[in-house]
């Protein structure tokens, strides 16, 4: 968390103040600065503006729409005091470990399952590492361990490969399944 003061007010006090954030569909959200700061993008804006920050005129977010930002805010509210997320390695396989989620987070993703990719886009733009990593993992979970047919069926993907091409891919990828 940033400790330097913006707008001439020390950080803890500032965190309690409200800031207006405007999404690209012109919806205004009044958010506590402490919550908004979970997003590094917004945090940077607040810091860069510093003295000139006018809390009431609002911060524009041209790449996020209202319904999604609402969901993101829910995440920020829960994670405003959460420590920075760490990417860990499994000491045995040396592969990146899959994150373990709290019950709240599981529930959150269950609730917004159909918006996962909007969330991933928003989290990427807003630089919220926890939300970004977890959403991506949730999406990966849906691909994991499924056959190409199941995945195509699941996401309604058109099969544009010929049988020969598929055989070729299988042949060149034999080592992957080793």
């Amino acid at each position: 968390m940033a400790t330097e003061s913006a707008n001439g007010v020390s950080s803890p006090e500032l965190n309690e103040r409200d800031v207006v954030i405007t999404t690209n569909d012109n919806r205004n959200f009044t958010v506590k600065i402490g919550v908004a700061r979970v997003s590094k993008t917004i945090n940077n804006m607040i810091q860069d503006l510093g003295e000139s920050l006018d809390l009431s005129s609002g911060i524009p977010l041209p790449n996020v729409d209202g319904p999604i930002f609402e969901k993101v805010l829910e995440w920020c509210e829960e994670h405003k005091n959460a420590p920075e997320i760490k990417v860990e390695q499994d000491p045995h396989t040396r592969e990146r470990k899959w994150f373990t989620m709290t019950e709240w987070e599981e529930e959150y993703f269950r609730k917004f399952l159909s918006h996962l990719w909007d969330l991933a886009m928003a989290a990427n733009y807003l630089e919220i590492p926890s939300l970004y990593y977890y959403t991506c993992q949730k999406l990966a979970e849906r691909i994991k361990g499924r056959t190409p047919e199941q995945i195509r069926e699941m996401f309604g993907i058109e099969d544009d490969l010929t049988e020969e091409e598929k055989a070729e891919i299988r042949r060149t990828n034999v080592w992957c399944t080793y």
Binding site: I143, I151, D160, I169, T177
Partner: peptide, 19 residues
């Protein structure tokens, strides 16, 4: 980034989906 969570065998499956 999403694909980076997957194992090689899952990636090989993913390669067979479309171009």
């Amino acid at each position: 980034y999403i694909l980076s969570f997957l194992s090689p065998s899952d990636l090989s499956n993913a390669a067979q989906i479309c171009h």
